[in-house]
Amino acid sequence: MSDNLKPLSVIAVIALIILAPAIRDALREEAATYVDDSESSHDGLPESWNDTQVFCVLFPDQTSHPKFTSGVTMIEQDGSTLGTNSEYNGTGACAGGFSGFENGLDLMDAAVNSSGTDLVYNLTEFSFGLQIDSIGGIEPCDATECSDSSGAYWALYHNGGTSLVGISDIILSEGDVLLWQIATW
């Protein structure tokens, strides 16, 4: 049997390469079942956005975004500003009123486009997936002092809970809310 280990290992690699997309899709769908319903995540958002998909970015107090300096600015799909909620817990912007998006990154791209260049992001592609480096020009370490033993990152929340998968792996339902906020470690 040990003589067969080399060909067996090659077969295992080939099988995994072939099956990986199907396994990834199955796991994405399983991850979607663990996401909380979207109802409470719409608190503080415009009523007209109920049951629509929303994308938010909250900036830390220590960094000043050139445009979003207080409260949370609500941006419609067409780029018009609906208003600012100064009682929302944070400072930043939300773009909402979207529907029909099934993938998190597609919703993010549509929302970023609707904001003009105010929420434009940079990312790095790693072997394990995408990492968001900056949103609206703000990098995580602008918000906190990063060192060898501590740091910060853009954390992703799906309907108020920490997302179990990356932005490009999120499967969306109608009414879902995605939110980026800087977290530290």
């Binding site: 990986a20 396994i23 991850a31 394990f128 179990l164």
Partner: peptide, 10 residues
């Protein structure tokens, strides 16, 4: 548990 499940492919 869901975190481990999502890492199954890796």
């Amino acid at each position: 548990a869901p975190y481990l499940l999502n890492g199954l492919l890796f």
